[in-house]
Design a protein around this nucleic acid. Structure first.
Length: 862
DNA sequence: ATGAATGCCTA
DNA sequence: GTAGGCATTCATT
């Protein structure tokens, strides 16, 4: 017998939505209901193996029921946005699964199910209706069964006539009568007052139908009889509304509902987009797109390699995957994978590379051939590894960088993840480099299409790709340090720490671990009974802010602050850096990460050269250990003055802000004068500092709470400052409003060079999450555009150095400044290049100013 | 060994 | 109020 499965789309989507925890893609699309629905659908298709399937949806009111009864579902709250948006996604999936969905103006899903099941019954089908709505039980017959969801949507219960009889003691046809008697709060249907499920069922078991009960009402007694007589008509009306219509003409032949194979490729694409990785896993593998049947050929002799190189040269393109080990820049090349087309790839293992010098040379010259376009994953790392082989490795498409631009908020950009997310193929860790290389070309196609669609081709090709070369060379250059100086600092800090430790123990009256916030908290707030200022999740807060407030209450406080500071200097900086000095070159080599930050900045690790102390005199001594390469060289620093505020002036177009920069004014002093309404020559340094805090606050996506916190004023006062600021710089307020609005609509924000960041929480109902997202939306275009600008400058400068064959090396980038090692004789020309490239990197409506300093150590130029 | 919590350094 | 990296302690594996 033919089996047809009819599904109540609305009912199940609602169930899934409320039963499942919120689920969102990394880009902020809500997906929990779709996920639950599809999960259930796939399971039930597998279990029931229907020959025909249809999903029914409600079609926008008013339905005939509203015409009949104006209060129908009147107290039903509007469907939440987060759910409403999921229906279109589901419909796309149904299409990909080749499952028909039906809807008809003025009818609800269950009417369509009723009509289809009637038709199916007439044609001799066995029908299975899947829903979460108990009313649907009225459709049950010998050939129509209903599966009701239980506990959200995780379980199903099958109802046939016997089951209904057993459970309720009535026939399926009496279900509307039951509802007529009981009423239904959710549909706003009135029943008979005082009649609940128990009474209604008892009456129906005895009399069969609502009408029959009413006719025999006289036989009953008391309040029940009275209410039946009084409200009988109302109950009949509710029964009518609860009766599912079974003669809707859907103008379709049941044959059209025949269930064929899903389009697995399309389905996989949608699942990947929705980040439904567990569902993706359940799709049949061989049906999935881009599944590679690549044979990875191990190349062992030069003869084989020659043929491969011939093929690569003919195609003028190759994907290369490098097996490497070690932390950059100490990267060592192991195996190499090559792929010129997606159906075949080659693998050159480590041993062959090591033992067959002739073969290795051929490969290296292939890698050095600029006529061949190269697709790689993490080209910077490859460049560093190949530099040790004497190759100046240049590449044309880095899938890691492309994926980062497409979504810079992801946690990982490793090849396995990208292949899985974009191609749906699983790459086990043990796959050889040839196999991995074979996925690179198809991956590049998918990613470059996305870059093109998001208008980020230029940012990719002209900024990030060339920048990765620059960063590779910076990593390899390293920076010279004076290890003895570093050692002396460590000892100096250590000695002072020892005496501080003694004093702290003495003042506390006991010895304890000062480094443990837990133990310190106990000493301060229990032993010494100092006032508790702030609490943390697990106990007292002892951070610097708290300790500052406790100054004066006990002499131990200042000692602890100094201890903390020196401990930081010694462990993180003096000792930390010392352990990273290369014994051969006396240099420190950092890694500059290009795919870490969500805003587009680069980051630095092992060591982080972007947070070397500068604010205090003692801290600056750490900078003193970073020196020029040799006595004939100097360090040069060029740093942008107020780049983020200039970016703000540019993108907001605020006249006041622009004028300030065009006239070269002191921006914080001007803001003080504007915000506090005093002449510029009357601005005190204290007022200037407050204005500076307001300026920073604007960049960080200001909140009255945050500004108040920072300045130690009330939120009311902070609000006044902000209001006053906006009155003076009105287009800044407009910019903030527009940016947030834009983010709420589009789900992302962009920078000057069209870098993009998704802001998933921007429409969250959680105030804290939403507020944070709004600040991120405001800050990211500013911080990210500043990052764009300095990146462009770095590329320009690098190219000019190459062009003029200069020996000067770019060493460090600290977000708004660049540090170079310069042979003295190149100083003037380098200064000119750096100045002009930094100032003209990206033209803005305000000038970009760069300050320069020259010295023997980093301390001197800070 | 790993990870959360706490704290602090930078732009 | 934005963006990072890293050291230390302490509980869990």
């Amino acid at each position: 017998m033919k089996k047809i499965m009819l599904i109540d789309g609305n009912s199940l989507m609602h169930r899934a939505f409320y039963a499942l925890p919120p689920l969102m893609t990394s880009k902020g699309v809500h997906t929990n209901a779709v996920y639950g629905f599809v999960n259930m659908l796939m399971r039930i298709i597998k279990e029931e193996a229907p020959d025909y399937i249809a999903v029914a949806f409600d079609r926008k009111a008013p339905t005939f029921r509203h015409q009949e009864y104006t209060a129908y579902k009147a107290n039903r709250v509007k469907m939440p946005e987060e759910l409403a948006g999921q229906f279109d996604i589901l419909k796309q999936i149904l299409k990909a699964m080749n499952i028909r969905y039906v809807e008809k103006e003025g009818y609800e899903a269950d009417d369509l199910l009723g009509s289809l099941s009637k038709k199916a019954e007439e044609e001799g089908f066995l029908t299975l209706i899947v829903t979460g709505d108990k009313d649907t039980l009225q459709l049950v017959s010998p050939k129509v069964h209903v599966m009701l969801t239980r506990k959200g949507i995780s379980e199903m219960e099958l109802y046939d006539i016997q089951k209904i009889k057993k459970r309720f003691g009535i026939k399926p046809e009496a279900v509307p009568d039951l509802k007529g008697l009981m009423g239904d709060a959710s549909d706003n249907l009135p029943g008979i007052p005082g009649v609940g499920e128990k009474t209604a069922l008892k009456l129906l078991q005895e009399y069969g139908t609502l009408e029959n009960i009413l006719e025999n009402a006289d036989a009953l007694k008391g309040k029940l009889r009275e209410n039946l007589l009084l409200y009988g008509e109302q109950a009949k009306s509710s029964k009518k509304l609860a009766t599912i219509v079974r003669d809707v003409d859907l103008e379709l032949d049941l044959e059209e509902l025949a269930f064929s194979e899903p389009d697995y490729e399309k389905l996989a694409r949608i699942f990947r987009e929705l980040e439904f990785y567990s569902l993706l896993d359940r799709l049949p593998r061989q049906k999935e797109g881009n599944q590679q049947k690549t044979v990875s050929v191990c190349i062992a002799d030069v003869g084989q390699l020659d043929k491969v190189i011939e093929e690569i040269k003919a195609r003028k393109a190759v994907a290369i995957e490098f097996q490497t080990e070690g932390k950059s820049p100490a990267v060592r090349l192991k195996g190499i994978g090559l792929s010129a087309s997606s159906d075949c790839s080659y693998f050159v293992p480590e041993e062959v590379l090591r033992e067959n010098q002739n073969l290795k040379d051929k490969i290296l010259s292939l890698l050095a051939d600029r006529e061949i376009a190269k697709v790689v994953h993490d080209g910077k790392r490859a460049r560093v590894a190949l530099a040790k082989e004497g190759i100046d490795f240049i590449y044309d498409f880095d899938t890691m960088l492309a994926a980062y631009l497409i979504d810079p908020s992801k946690a990982r950009y490793d090849l396995e993840s990208l292949i899985y997310e974009n191609l749906g193929a699983e790459l086990k860790g043990f796959e050889d480099a040839g196999k991995r290389a074979s996925f690179l070309l198809p991956l590049k196609e998918v990613l470059s299409e996305k870059l093109k669609n998001q208008d980020m081709e230029s940012l990719f090709k002209d900024v990030e790709m060339p920048l990765s070369i620059v960063l590779a060379d910076m990593e390899m250059a390293g920076i010279r340090v004076d290890p003895e100086k570093l050692q002396r600092l460590s000892l100096e800090f250590g000695e002072r720490l020892e005496s501080l430790t003694d004093e702290i123990y003495r003042l506390a009256g006991l010895e304890f671990n000062i480094n443990s916030p837990k133990q310190l908290g106990e000493v301060l707030f229990e032993k010494l009974s100092l006032p508790v200022i702030k609490k943390k999740k697990s106990g007292y807060s002892t951070d610097a802010e708290v300790l500052e407030k406790l100054k004066g209450t006990h002499p131990i406080i200042e000692k602890i602050l100094e201890y903390r500071f020196l401990m930081k200097m010694k462990s993180t900086y003096a000792d930390g850096l010392l352990s990273l000095v290369d014994r051969e070159t006396f240099k420190i080599y950092s890694t500059f990460n290009q795919t870490i930050t969500a805003t587009g900045r680069i980051s630095s690790t092992e060591p982080n050269l972007q947070n070397i102390p500068v604010k205090t005199e003692i801290g600056r001594k750490i900078r003193g250990v970073f020196v020029a390469e040799n006595p004939d060289h100097v360090l040069l620093s060029g740093d942008y003055s107020q780049i983020e505020l200039r970016v703000l002036a540019h993108i907001s177009g605020d006249e006041g802000l622009i004028e300030a920069f065009v006239k070269g004014e002191d921006i914080h002093a001007r803001t003080a004068s504007e915000v506090f309404g005093i002449p510029k020559d009357r601005v005190t340094s204290q007022l200037r500092d407050r204005a500076k805090a307001v300026n920073f606050g604007i960049i960080y996506g200001i909140s009255d709470y945050g500004l108040a916190q920072n300045l130690g004023i009330t939120t009311g006062e902070a609000r006044e400052y902000i209001e006053s600021y906006f009155n003076r710089y009105p287009k800044v307020r407009d910019y903030i409003r527009e940016t947030i609005k834009d983010a709420k609509i589009k789900g992302y924000v962009t920078t000057i060079l069209n870098r993009r960041r998704y802001i998933p929480d921007i429409n969250s109902k959680n105030y804290n999450l939403r507020s944070f997202a709004e600040r991120v939306a405001v800050n990211t275009p500013i911080q990210g555009s500043a990052a764009d600008i300095i990146k462009v400058a770095m590329v320009k400068i690098y190219n000019h150095f190459k062009e003029f064959k200069l020996k000067t090396k770019m060493l460090i980038q600290v977000h708004d400044e660049l540090i170079f090692d310069v042979p003295k004789e190149e100083l003037e020309v380098v200064k000119n290049i750096v100045k002009s490239d930094m100032e003209t990197a990206v033209p803005l409506r305000v000038p970009l100013e760069v300050d320069f300093k020259v010295g023997k150590s980093w301390e001197e130029i800070s």
